[in-house]
């Protein structure tokens, strides 16, 4: 069975958990004491992943130490419909483009959030501006898409682009970055939450219409 080095409060790990849930892929979590232990930074962990980051996916003898690569790996191996990683040339490029955006431009949201949760510090004014600039890119793209009845980041179906961008954006308030001015993001959050098999993580609440 696939093993996932995991921390409950890591939004990067949640990307992998979420895709696995949506595709019905079972995995065995290996829980890492990230906070307060900092076990992922210790020399022992460097033997597992020299980059000393989580998530790490172990699939048989194959080990992957990068979130985007894990998402691609799972989609290629476990999604025969090819919806989550479209093989159409343009859509494939666009999907990878968003994965890069999630890793680079949205990394600030992730670090602001973990710093805020672990009481390590809060956002500077420059960081706040950078965070909003990144969120505005997603907001504008989604709002334009809605006019063309494209309700997902790439085309008319959810892809791993949505899985990579959803956690850091919806969890922005955890890091002190408010989301009030992004209405298209909120509508898209709701669409993600209604996907069959959707799971939450701490800080993300389910869509409760029809439940309570």
């Amino acid at each position: 069975m696939i093993q996932l080095y995991d921390y409950i409060l890591s939004a990067e790990c949640y990307k992998v958990r979420l895709l696995c849930a949506l595709l019905g892929v079972k995995f065995q979590p290996i829980k890492v004491n990230v906070h307060p232990g900092g076990d992922h930074l210790k020399p022992e962990f460097a033997l597992i992943n020299p980059r000393r980051t989580i998530p790490v996916l172990q699939d048989g003898a194959h080990r992957i130490c990068d979130t985007n690569t894990i998402l691609i790996h799972i989609a290629r191996r476990h999604d025969p419909s090819e919806q989550w990683l479209p093989r159409d040339e343009n859509m494939f490029d666009d999907t990878l483009g968003w994965l890069g955006f999630a890793a680079k431009e949205l990394d600030l949201l992730q670090s602001l959030r973990m710093n805020s949760i672990t009481a390590a510090g809060s956002a500077s004014r420059t960081e706040m501006e950078q965070a909003h600039a990144a969120l505005t890119i997603v907001e504008d793209h989604l709002a334009e898409g809605e006019l063309e009845r494209r309700h997902w980041l790439v085309g008319k179906s959810p892809t791993i682009a949505d899985i990579a961008v959803f956690p850091p954006t919806i969890l922005a308030p955890d890091g002190g970055v408010p989301l009030e001015r992004y209405p298209a993001l909120w509508r898209w959050f709701d669409r993600v939450k209604k996907l069959h098999g959707f799971i939450v993580m701490p800080g993300i609440f389910p869509n409760l219409s029809g439940v309570v």
């Binding site: 921390y7 409950i8 409060l9 829980k31 004491n33 906070h35 232990g37 949760i117 308030p173 955890d174 701490p202 800080g203 609440f205």
Partner: peptide
């Protein structure tokens, strides 16, 4: 045990 507590606490925090 720690992961269990952090799940609960992060929910409260949000």
């Amino acid at each position: 045990i720690l992961h269990f507590y952090h799940e609960i606490f992060a929910q409260d925090r949000s």
